[in-house]
Design a protein around this nucleic acid. Sequence first.
DNA 1: TGCCAAACTGACCGATCGGTCAGATGCTGT
DNA 2: ACAGCATCTGACCGATCGGTCAGTTTGGCA
Lengths: 190, 190
Amino acid sequence: MSTSSDDLRSIALAEFATAGYSATSLHRIADLAGLSKSSVLYHYSSKETLLEATIAPALDRMEQILDALEARTLSPEGRTAFLAEFVDFILQYRLEVNMFINQGPSLVDVPVIDRANDLVVRLSEYFAANTGSVEEKMRFGIALGGAAYMLCRADSLNFESAPIEQTRVALVNILTELLAPVDPITTNRI
Amino acid sequence: MSTSSDDLRSIALAEFATAGYSATSLHRIADLAGLSKSSVLYHYSSKETLLEATIAPALDRMEQILDALEARTLSPEGRTAFLAEFVDFILQYRLEVNMFINQGPSLVDVPVIDRANDLVVRLSEYFAANTGSVEEKMRFGIALGGAAYMLCRADSLNFESAPIEQTRVALVNILTELLAPVDPITTNRI
DNA sequence: TGCCAAACTGACCGATCGGTCAGATGCTGT
DNA sequence: ACAGCATCTGACCGATCGGTCAGTTTGGCA
């Protein structure tokens, strides 16, 4: 795998995540890479293949996390440990996550997107497993979609660039607060 | 304004919000409305005009809310009252909000989208006015992007349809918790 | 009935889309 | 020097895009 392939992958990722998959032409990706459209199609046989190469690593990592998660017991400690792991994941792959979170519904019938949607459903089912509460499910949706949105639009919302460790700690705080398990007796948050 | 115009507006809204603006062709909108593409362009002189008609009502309402908000004092009570108002707004216009939240960056140079982005910045500046805290800004981004995402993807995340009033109360709870002002002395959340 | 404007349509336009292909260019090992 | 493979390119293709236009259908009103 040469430098061009990796360049194309990261360029495509940035464009797909910000401008959207269908709004990004192969011509534009080629221009940004300093190549011709034909060269892009030499490295990736189709636009869809390029999309797949773009988000597959994130999906692999997320699948790995989910597999480990479902093998554990559903203890509150397990949840806390998972949250730290998940925050690291979403920080590392924020562009990819924002992509298949927000563009997932518009890219049905693309196999790699179907896979992404399946993973999101698996994750939501984990959080909804013990609670039938509507608010609990809403909290999960807000946490997932909100984190993906915030991390990608941070600069356009007048965030000064904060050190990554501060962002990580703050995000763990917020998601822990949002997703803390409900006390089933009093139905108050513990 | 005839029935066809309103039909086209609501059809376009649903398609733009779910499939994305650039991924939705005038031909598809015409098909869904049972009309020809030429008829769509008879009611709305361009695709961009149709987009404008689609989200302008939501922008008018949001601008109205922001004007009233900035005229008030920045008291915690003002914040609470605003949150209830804002939740009603986002529930009524969830498709429109999800559109210019998630597709805003990909539709620059479209005047109506620029207006939407300006409004989002105004809102974020209100919440960031008293706190330079990075976590506070992150909380705002998560609340805004998360609520928009959750309300539009509820069905795909195995939400059973809940009564609207329950959703409203739960959303006010969650956003209040997320956006509660920080105690400036201890920098703990009150 | 006749008339007129609103509503609607199909044919057509230039531009751009993703994708194919034959060939040019460069780089490496022999 | 030559062979061979990876890389890259421009010309070209059919399909679809947003948009224009001349003309037809429709419905209400005099």
